[in-house]
Nucleic acid binder design. Structure first.
Lengths: 240, 240
DNA sequence: TAAAAACCCTGACAAGTATCATGGTTTTGA
DNA sequence: TCAAAACCATGATACTTGTCAGGGTTTTTA
């Protein structure tokens, strides 16, 4: 099993390990104490929905541990996963900032402890604390950069290249070194991977199998291992 | 000809018509006067480069009138247009905010009057003025939403659907009603359109011709007219 | 623990697009 | 104003990827 997060946790924001690279990293002690009193922590089970697309944004969620997927339902019923969120990530920002409905649905992939912060409190915090406002701006810029890179990738790259990029990003966020290989410690289906890079499950499966055969990755059931990230990256550059 | 912007303009930010829906809309008179003293307006000629990808961000540019394209050069030499900027749009935000290099190149498509605002002044303004910080946050959120929609479109839609979406967005920004039709008052090549939606010039030309034949749009040389935006939108929904 | 559901895998085939090639037209710039 | 460059247009062809179908495997749940 992966990290042990299937039991309920409580704890102060002041010592929260997920805070370090979140938008609350720079907060003053005073504001942190307020945040601590205001937030509510809950254990969500696999499959539970944090918020639904087009529903009013009541607050933001901050992931303590676990896995959440953010997805959009297009008219024709297909779901597109726009983002995976894990420890330290904040969800529901957009809806809260614009005081409108959530633009997407957030669904828990694995049992997760997640804090809820009321929208009023959050907006006040941004107004009151220049550090918080600044952190927020920096975070938004970072997410924009990611989004833009993703959009450009979709524009210019083949499915195989996109899949490799996805695997590499998985390695960075969920990678665990094990006997010289990187093990991607993330429970995700081929269909979910497909919906992240705009292709079909069949195509993902085919490309993974092919890369397995050629030794660039190794599959063991649904588990994926990457012997060499460099070699994998190279494969995405020059398509022979 | 389109609007007359090929001669040099100067003027105060206080009465600038492009300010209304820019990030400077909410600025106090005091800060506006400072901005006015600090900014420098220049006339840029077609083809000139405002800033180059990977060069240090010295400040932001605010388009007074004209057309600018923002593009990225991928390794293989292809250029992807990520955005078109026009009156009121601000360019170079990301590089300035992160105090790093510009993530893209900005190139003038048509003679344009553009203001330059030094990065130090801009960052100070954000620090000093909560309204400015708030405007900035709102603008970033808006741009993120656009980016995300674009990425999702690339994920799920066919080239024809993407092209129609592009034309519809052109209608909204550059559309001029003329004898019952909407004329897209924007000088852009088929190749540029292709690079915005991740396809080739040939495919764009083919689809435009086909839609011309079926009467959904009308081409006159490189000019494009849309008789009915509703009908065009419908065409993108149900592909027969 | 057994049945049901979800998921993985492979093959055959079709559709959508990219690529290459060629010629006509418009725009640019000396 | 005229040549050069950039751009538009169309055809033929090949390739990438999606779709559909069938069967095996793993996971979930009652």
């Amino acid at each position: 099993m992966t990290s042990d997060c299937s039991h309920r946790k409580q704890g102060s924001c002041l010592v929260c390990p997920s805070r370090d690279d979140s938008i609350f990293a720079e907060l003053s002690t005073k504001h942190l104490e307020e945040l601590d009193k205001s937030k509510v922590t809950n254990l969500y089970r696999k499959g539970q929905v944090l918020f639904q697309q087009d529903s009013p944004a009541l607050g933001v969620f901050c992931v303590l541990d676990g896995q959440v997927k953010v997805l959009k339902n297009s008219e024709d019923g297909k779901e597109t996963i726009t983002r995976l969120a894990t420890s330290g990530d904040v969800l529901g920002l957009r809806g809260v900032l614009t005081e409108s409905n959530h633009p997407a649905t957030a669904k828990v992939m694995q049992d997760s402890n997640i804090c809820f912060i009321d929208r009023r409190f959050f907006k006040d915090l941004i107004q009151k604390s220049p550090e918080a406002a600044n952190s927020l701006i920096m975070r938004l810029v970072k997410e924009m950069t990611k989004l833009e890179e993703h959009a450009e990738e979709m524009n210019t790259k083949t499915v195989k290249q996109r899949l490799i990029q996805l695997l590499l990003s998985f390695c960075q966020t969920y990678g665990m070194r094990k006997a010289g290989e990187v093990f991607i410690d993330l429970k995700i289906t081929r269909a979910e991977m497909a919906s992240m890079i705009g292709t079909t499950p069949e195509t993902v499966i085919r490309i993974l199998s092919e890369m397995d055969s050629s030794g660039i990755i190794r599959q063991d059931g649904k588990k994926i291992f990457v012997p060499s990230m460099d070699q994998l990256a190279e494969e995405s550059g020059v398509q022979i």
